[in-house]
Every structure is written in C-alpha cells, then in structure tokens.
C-alpha cells in the first residue's frame, strides 16, 4: 500500500482521495511540507491554478514541491497540469516547470464550452476508449522531446508523461473509471 499525497490547498482533492482509497492505497491530504515529506507520490488536483500558485508562495511550498518532483512521481489534472507545466499564460507566478509542456489555459472557452467526450487512451500499448470530463480545460500547445503523449481527443494530446510526471487536461477523478489513477500509482516513476 503506497502513501499517495493529494495537494489540498484548494480544488477537488476530495474526489482524488476517493479514487486513491478505492484502489486500496492510503490518501494523505497535503497542506504543508511535513505532510508532503511522508508521501510516496503526489497528485495535484483540479481547481484554480492562480489560487494554487498564490498559496504555494504564501505557504513556502514551491521549493519542497520542486524537490519532491525531482525524485518522486507527481500527477496533475487540469489546474494540476498547468501548475506542473513549463509555461502557461496569465499566471501570477511561474508554474513549477517539472514537465516540458507549454499550456494554453481555458483553451476551449468558458464554462458553456465544457464537455464530456470519449478520448483515446493508450497507456499499455493498446488504444482504449475513456470518458474524458473537460471543465474550462486547458490544451497542451507543445510537448518537449522527453514527453510521451498517452491520450488524445480528436487531434489534441490530452494526457502525457515524462519519466515521473503525468499530466491530463481532463478530470479522471470525476468519473468512476480508475484506470488512470491505477496507471499513475502502479507504473509512473
């Protein structure tokens, strides 16, 4: 049983903790460095990326998160993806830059443009359908050479990973399908 931290400054961290517990791992809500240090892996949830970055500065969490991400695995969904990226527009502080992707925020439009649609997920050599929930979602505008695409919606890459960082523009935590959480916990990093 692994200790999976979920950054709980703001956002839908509770939904991620349910997914982690359903997979019979321990979910640890992380609001400070002490809790972070106890974790084997970390999830940065959906929420508001501007709020995350403000609170990370205020609570001195940037450096501990950077150190964690250099050694251990992190998954980021939606705002979590933005937080882990190399660059994204209109943020109060630079994102963490732990994965070489460039992000366009709110790329599909506003909430009226949010949607659920089937995406193509390929984590173990075969493409499978997966219901992707996209809420005011970002798009990955560019991927670095060490980043592998893992899922597509139409022509857009919606999930990708480097050696130990996994990011998705959609919300696997809002569905009951645990495949992506299981992949992260068992195979990333």
């Amino acid at each position: 049983m692994a200790k999976i931290g979920i950054l709980a400054l703001q956002g839908d961290f509770y939904r991620h903790s349910l997914a982690v517990r359903r997979l019979e791992h321990e979910a640890v809500l992380v609001k400070d460095e002490a809790a972070l240090k106890k974790c084997d892996k970390l999830i940065i949830p959906g929420g508001e990326s501007t709020t995350f970055l403000h609170l990370m500065e205020k609570l001195n969490l940037r450096q501990p998160l950077l150190e964690f991400g250099r050694e251990k695995a992190i998954m980021g969904t939606c705002a979590g993806l933005i937080t882990l990226s190399k660059s994204a527009g209109h943020l109060p502080f630079p994102p963490l830059g732990l994965i070489d992707i460039t992000v366009e925020r709110n790329a599909y439009g506003r909430q009226v443009d949010s949607f659920v649609d089937t995406i193509r997920l390929n984590v173990n050599g075969t493409e499978r359908p997966y219901e992707g929930v996209f809420i005011r979602a970002p798009k990955i505008a560019a991927l670095g050479s060490d980043v592998r695409p893992l899922a597509w919606h139409k022509d857009d890459v919606v999930m990708a990973a480097s050696e130990n960082i996994l990011v998705a523009t959609f919300h696997p935590e809002l569905t009951d399908d645990l495949r992506i959480h299981a992949y992260f916990i068992e195979q990333v990093g």
């Binding site: 839908d12 959906g46 005011r136």
Partner: peptide, 18 residues
Amino acid sequence: DKTFLVKVGLAEMLKGGV
C-alpha cells in the same frame, strides 16, 4: 447525466476556496 456532470464538475473545482 453528462450535462449535469459538467455543471457539478465546475462546482467541485471551486471547493476549498473563496
């Protein structure tokens, strides 16, 4: 249903905030 999931989804994202 899908429409309601997307609506509640945004509310979920606003949790723990102001």
